[in-house]
């Protein structure tokens, strides 16, 4: 073992990790928490007001130029549809960015719940995307750039709300399909999304997220019998732009009752934090092991080394 091979080792390992090290410092920027843009918009969904008319579904379909549905939007029998042996109700897919489901809580009137992207403050889809296809805009929308999407579908695995859908039927241009808060056509210009605009019951309230939080808590205080005392989405999973008020416990209307208040990215921060450490420590540690093993070995493997040495000397003559 000589200086030459150490130098070579350094050169080789630097070359070997150069690419990966580049990623290291940038990752640090992702730590720290983000609680949403100060003037980000949102929607407050009041399940006590929703009557299940499905006009939001129709408006979304028209605004986003989605294909006509199998059953018309005034057909209320879709509420009885279940999938996978009754284990699942309707969910957003490539042809519908929002759906309304009916729940029958124990001993109460039916409750309708609108499902769409909740536009998280720290979206799991965004933080899991390895080509940065998602953007959280200042207006509060989580939008998606299909031009760079590779189709790995990690965002679908990561989304705690089961929202992003994939156009599996397309062979040449399959992309993620999800609610984008009508960003391109409306939100950008300060307008509410199509579903909010059309809602006849004012079940959906559009406004600045920080104002909606106040309105939500006001309603709970004013009508304590009407609501459970929880504004779902205020803190859950780091907070969402769309928030919900419900008359019954949230698990009875299809919500995960205990998602935690940590954004999804916090689950991988520990791992991402170890990456620069491994990159920095492993080379020295294992070269150290190598040197220790060599010194201990004695004559055992000198044959191997001596030859290499000879070869090198030969080269320098």
């Amino acid at each position: 073992m000589s200086g030459i091979s150490r130098r070579r080792f350094l050169a080789a390992s630097v070359a070997g990790c150069a690419a990966t090290t580049l990623a290291g410092p940038r990752k640090a920027l992702a730590s720290g928490t983000f609680s949403g843009y100060p003037d980000g918009m949102g929607v407050l969904v009041d399940l006590t007001r929703c009557v299940g008319c499905r006009s939001c579904e129709a408006a979304c379909n028209k605004e986003q130029k989605l294909p006509a549905p199998d059953r018309p939007f005034d057909d209320m029998s879709v509420f009885d549809e279940t999938f996978h042996d009754g284990k699942q109700k309707r969910r957003p897919d490539e042809n519908a960015y929002t759906v309304v489901n009916r729940y029958n809580p124990e001993g109460g009137a039916p409750v309708y719940r609108k499902v769409q992207c909740n536009h998280c403050n720290e979206p799991a889809c965004l933080s899991s995307c390895f080509v940065n296809a998602y953007t959280k805009t200042e207006e509060g929308a989580v939008v998606y750039n299909s031009k760079v999407c590779v189709g790995c579908r990690t965002c679908m695995v990561a989304c705690p709300f089961h929202v992003p859908a994939y156009s599996y039927s397309s062979s040449l241009d399959p992309v993620i399909k999800k609610c984008i808060f009508c960003y391109d056509t409306r939100l950008k210009n300060g307008l509410p999304p199509a579903c909010v605009d059309i809602c006849p019951q004012e079940a959906l309230t559009f406004g600045k997220r920080k104002d909606l939080i106040k309105i939500g808590h006001q309603r709970i205080e004013t009508h304590p019998g009407r609501y459970v005392a929880r504004l779902y989405g205020e803190k859950e999973l780091g907070g969402t732009s769309w928030m919900y008020l419900a008359p019954v416990a949230f698990d009875q209307v299809g919500f995960d009752p205990t998602p935690g208040n940590e954004p999804i990215i916090n689950n991988v921060k520990d791992f991402l934090g170890t990456v620069p450490m491994v990159l920095a420590i492993w080379p020295a540690m294992f070269t150290g092991f190598h040197l220790l093993a060599k010194k201990q070995k004695g004559h055992d493997d000198h044959e191997h080394d001596a030859e290499q040495q000879q070869g090198e000397d030969g080269g320098e003559q």
Partner: peptide, 17 residues
Amino acid sequence: RLPYPMFVSFGPAAVLF
């Protein structure tokens, strides 16, 4: 688009990256 994360668009805070 497999080479995209290397050359076109970077999401360095993602585990898959």
